[in-house]
Design a protein around this nucleic acid. Structure first.
Length: 271
DNA sequence: AGAAAATCCTGGTGGC
DNA sequence: TGCCACCAGGATTTTC
């Protein structure tokens, strides 16, 4: 399940290598979440200017427009001069003068969408409601606190919603709340000032560390069949229900919030 | 109106 | 061995 760190590690793995390349051919496999939104002929001959990231979207900047790439929950990208023959789960491939970019996505929750600009309706629809970038300077404690104050839902679900701060998926939400010592069920609006500050720092910290860990495996990214180093960062609570808390030894608990599993330590995380 | 909750899509995994 | 419930991210739909 690629969350922000995995998407960023993926971006770092090919952004500089693909920059400046020219698209020579595009192959489409089975339908993804959304249609490409343009004829592949429109992409041929375009120059790739760079690759940015917004939330969990990769923005491949072309001479005319952008390709928005989302990895969904099972997608991964590979970029190499040569790739093996297409497999059953390869649903997008773009040949360029610098190499071949391929999206492999068994569950096809991912997408590659062409938009003519970042202000066109389709781009606005996908990117318009995204919250602050947690690793950027724009993620200020004051803005985070203001947003939390107007949300009555459980803090875990506010983090997951992505309209206040992006990129915190199910796993890192549990981890960040553990780091900050906050019970996932507490209403966001009722968090004390110190808790908000701890959570703000914890989100930055856990995501930045995950990017750094993923980055440590970047060297063998292409030979590692697209592994992103996702499991490099050991979880403190996620997936550890019934096991002792690594910090205090109490039994880690699991609960359901909005059809999603949440993990927490009842001793370390208080209301 | 706006926030919150439910639903849907897909295929790999694990339990039985 | 095969069946089937379960899980996941996020847009969309429904409910409150």
């Amino acid at each position: 399940m690629p969350e922000l760190p995995e998407v960023e590690v993926t971006r770092l793995s090919f952004a500089s290598a693909i920059a400046g390349a020219t698209v020579t051919a595009v192959f489409l496999g089975k339908p993804l979440r959304w249609p490409l939104g343009c004829d592949v002929a429109l992409l041929n001959g375009q120059r790739i200017l760079g690759v940015q990231r917004r939330g969990k979207y990769l923005l491949i900047e072309l001479s005319q427009g952008y390709l928005l790439v989302h990895l969904g929950m099972s997608g991964s990208l590979r970029f190499a001069p040569q790739l093996p023959a297409l497999g059953v789960h390869d649903h997008f491939e773009m040949h360029t003068t610098h190499g071949c970019l391929r999206l492999t996505d068994p569950r096809r929750f991912g997408a590659v969408v062409y938009v003519s600009s970042l202000t066109d309706p389709q781009a606005t629809k996908l990117l318009g409601r995204l919250g602050m970038e947690p690793l950027s300077d724009a993620f200020e404690l004051s803005r985070f606190a203001t947003g939390l104050h107007q949300r009555k839902a459980a803090i875990k679900q506010v983090l997951l919603a992505g309209d206040l701060v992006v990129g915190v998926g199910n796993i890192y939400a549990s981890e960040a709340l553990f780091m900050a010592g906050i019970r996932p069920t507490q209403s966001a609006a009722t968090l004390s000032k110190p808790k908000m500050a701890r959570l703000h720092a914890a989100i930055r910290d856990v995501l930045a560390r995950a990017v750094a860990k993923g980055g440590s495996t970047l060297r063998d990214f292409s030979s590692a069949q697209g592994q992103t180093g996702y499991f490099q960062l050991e979880a403190m609570v996620y997936g550890r229900a019934g096991l002792p808390c690594k910090q205090c030894g109490a039994v880690v608990k699991m609960l359901r919030q909005g059809q999603r599993s949440t993990f927490y330590c009842p001793t370390c995380q208080k209301h």
